[in-house]
């Protein structure tokens, strides 16, 4: 805990990287993060800049460009039962074998059947009032619904199709995916916040079900989002620079040159290994890399 606390201070107060090291080290300066973020927003319409909590603004980033977010990314099944999809996703990549090689050691080994429709724990989001009899402030759910029974005059709206009921055939989840700049590791960092099929927040434990099992115990942690100050699932950035360096080298080994504004397109590819069930094609049109060649 103490170490993580120090690291969180480090993110805020560590010296800011000024000279470009993205090809040598796989790292970004804050300015380069903004340039790459602008390109991502420009090319991939689902991403946008956010300011977040003003009190948490980092002064080495422009006020309007504190972090990137894409909302409501579909996640249709749990990682533990879809681990076979990892390999296919990576093989689709530009770098051919090298992508697979990079992630060969990250393939989840075991497949467990996990029911994909677990009820949300009461502590996260109760569908109706709780039933604590010892609590006078909170009414019983049924009492409350009964008290509303007298005036359901908009119930007979034949022209509305509700999202619940027969339309909600898939037990999907959705995720808000955000990318911040980590000033300690000098790389982007990914944060996830999930919702169930009813739009209710997921618990941390539920979110971890969507992380490939190899990462769920090690590189993925639950921490406060630096700009939202709300616990999110995050991929720890300690290996990001190294992996990005490998990605960049393999990209350039084919004779092409990667510009720093393309950094985040490659970075998002890295995500797909850790969060295989999140539909990253939804967030980034991978043709964007080809277009900008």
């Amino acid at each position: 805990m103490a170490l993580r606390f120090l690291l969180s201070l480090g993110d805020k107060y560590a010296p800011v990287l000024r000279s470009s090291k993205f090809k040598e080290e796989g790292q970004l300066t804050p300015d380069e993060f903004v340039v790459a973020g602008q390109q991502l927003v420009h090319m991939c319409g689902t991403w946008s800049w956010e300011t977040g909590d003003k009190k948490s603004a980092r002064d080495y980033l422009p006020a309007q460009h504190q972090f990137l977010i894409t909302r409501k990314v579909p996640c249709r099944m749990r990682a533990k039962i879809s681990s076979q999809s990892v390999e296919r996703d990576i093989d689709d990549g530009e770098g051919g074998d090298s992508w697979t090689l990079t992630h060969a050691d990250q393939m989840p080994a075991k497949e467990e059947d996990v029911p994909d429709a677990q009820p949300a724990p009461k502590a996260t989001a109760a569908p109706v009032f709780d039933d604590d009899d010892d609590d006078d402030d909170v009414p019983d759910a049924d009492d409350y619904l009964t008290s509303l029974g007298a005036q359901r005059n908009d119930d007979n709206d034949a022209a509305s199709l509700e999202p619940q009921g027969k339309l909600a055939v898939e037990k999907h989840r959705t995720y808000d995916v955000s990318i911040t700049y980590d000033n300690w590791y000098k790389t982007p960092r990914v944060w996830l916040y999930g919702y169930d099929e009813y739009g209710r927040p997921l618990s941390s434990e539920q979110m971890l079900e969507d992380i490939s099992s190899d990462h769920a115990d090690k590189t993925v942690t639950v921490e406060n989002h630096p700009h939202l100050n709300i616990p999110h699932v995050s991929i720890h950035p300690c290996q990001h620079a190294h992996v990005m360096k490998t990605f960049i080298d393999s990209y350039e080994s084919t004779g092409r040159s990667l510009r720093v504004d393309q950094y985040l397109f490659l970075f998002i590819k890295l995500l797909s290994a850790v969060i295989p069930t999140i539909d990253y094609d939804f967030t980034v049109d991978m043709d964007a890399i080809k277009i900008s060649d």
Partner: peptide, 14 residues
């Protein structure tokens, strides 16, 4: 969530 006319509650204490 019951498909009825009624309010929702969310517990954000965690």
């Amino acid at each position: 969530l019951r498909g009825a006319a009624g309010a929702r509650v969310v517990d954000m204490s965690n």
